[in-house]
């Protein structure tokens, strides 16, 4: 892997999260314009994150809710 690619690879997450300072962000933008491989890699990482977020929330079963609720009320002596 080329040096610029390694640099890009190390910072993709911060890049995607908008956590880089302007200068570094521009450097990566510039590199991505020139490097198809990194561009594809960044896209695939972005997609991975979206995918994980898309599967995120679970619904707690109602029986668990009921059990926990009565334990709380018991604790608070109600």
């Amino acid at each position: 892997m080329k040096n610029d690619c390694v640099k890009c690879f190390q910072r993709i997450s911060e890049y995607l999260d908008g956590e880089l300072e302007d200068k570094t962000c521009h450097e990566i933008d510039e590199h991505l314009r020139q490097c198809a491989e990194c561009r594809e890699y960044v896209d695939s990482l972005r997609k991975t994150i979206q995918l994980c977020k898309g599967t995120a929330m679970e619904q707690m079963p109602i029986d668990i809710h009921d059990r926990i609720r009565s334990k709380i009320l018991e604790l608070l002596c109600m």
């Binding site: 892997m1 390694v6 690879f9 491989e37 594809e40 890699y41 695939s44 991975t48 995918l51």
Partner: peptide, 13 residues
């Protein structure tokens, strides 16, 4: 680290 060209297309659904 991804190795040059070894991976081909990234298939992420």
């Amino acid at each position: 680290i991804h190795k040059d060209g070894s991976e081909g297309k990234y298939e992420i659904p």
